[in-house]
Amino acid sequence: MNQSAIRIRAVMRKEFQEYRRNRFIIYTMGTLPLIFTALPVISLFSISNSTPPSVVRTQVAITLLLLLVIPVVLPATIAAYSVIGERDQGTLEPLLTTPISREEFLLGKSLAATIPTVGVAYVFFIVLVVAIRLGASSVVAHAVWQPSWFLAELLFAPLLAAWSVWVGTAISARSSDVRVAQQLGTLASLPALVLPLLMSLQVFKPTATVAVVIAVALAVIDVGAWRIVSKMFDRERLITGASAVTMRAEAGT
């Protein structure tokens, strides 16, 4: 294992240790997905075989879209805390005086936020589809058990989570208050749901090809966001509140 991987793993492990000791994060990860999925799931189970297919499709699409809110909202909250949280507890400066590069730091932080939230999203998805297969009416089971929905969940969850992480990290790096960062981070991450929403509302026909195309679009957006956030991560600005480039310009040197 090279040193870069060791550093990234060190950041991830530390983040996981902090999550485990922070009940707020544990409760959020557990309850938020429940809130998002409980009501739509109940309505899915109340659908009978005599319900018109269009109603079933709409209800299924809404439920699956709400499942995709989990990998958007959860990492945004965690990522929004990632930089400003370190600054607030006075750990950012000691951390930045070590040989870790900004890419390693950001990657470690983002993976630590992405992996558990995508895991939670997958678990909820699996539990839901299995429950539907076992307990819901056959029309609902047929509508849910489509390769396109499985592919969409499999691809969209990590890509949407990555987007949320970059947006949350960018806001965290520029904010001066944790609460503001978390609220802004959650809000700013929501636009990424537009593409899956169009698929859910059947603006595009929900096929596997459409899912792949949307996934590629999301991946492009993620790469762009990663590049922007990397450039925004300026050690000097994080420590002193102003970037070296700006200060040189102001000082006229």
């Binding site: 060791i6 550093r7 060190a10 006075g90």
Partner: peptide, 22 residues
């Protein structure tokens, strides 16, 4: 300000920073 992770133990803090040094 020492800048320690207060939810982590002394060893966990040091393991983390040792990891940052590779």
């Amino acid at each position: 300000v020492p800048g320690l992770y207060l939810r982590l133990s002394v060893t966990e803090n040091l393991v983390f920073f040792a990891g940052l040094y590779g």
